[in-house]
């Protein structure tokens, strides 16, 4: 029964929903982040070997992309 409901509901998710879905692309904008437009602070990370990685010093003179994440 549940499977049938899923199927029927999923079928009804026609292209009419797509505009609403695509607006989720704005998820990335979110609320302002504290560092937006500001100088990178002096923070210390660690590289994969465990050595200190002073972020400001190590990212100087080139564009750098940083993405936060974890296993969960």
């Amino acid at each position: 029964m549940i499977a049938k409901l899923f199927f029927a509901s999923a079928l009804s998710l026609g292209l009419t929903l797509m505009p609403a879905f695509s607006q989720r692309g704005g998820k990335g904008s979110g609320s302002p982040l504290p560092l937006q437009g500001k100088p990178l602070p002096e923070v210390i990370a660690y590289d994969e070997s465990g050595a200190e990685f002073p972020l400001l010093q190590k990212t100087r003179d080139r564009y750098t992309v940083i993405v936060f994440g974890c296993l969960t």
Binding site: G30, L40, V67
Partner: peptide
């Protein structure tokens, strides 16, 4: 944020800050 994304300029400024990576 859990999955935020940033671009840092060569001058050390955070020029793009996105709360969710895209």
């Amino acid at each position: 944020r859990n999955n935020s994304e940033f671009v840092i300029s060569p001058e050390g400024k955070v020029i793009i800050a996105r709360s969710w990576s895209s």
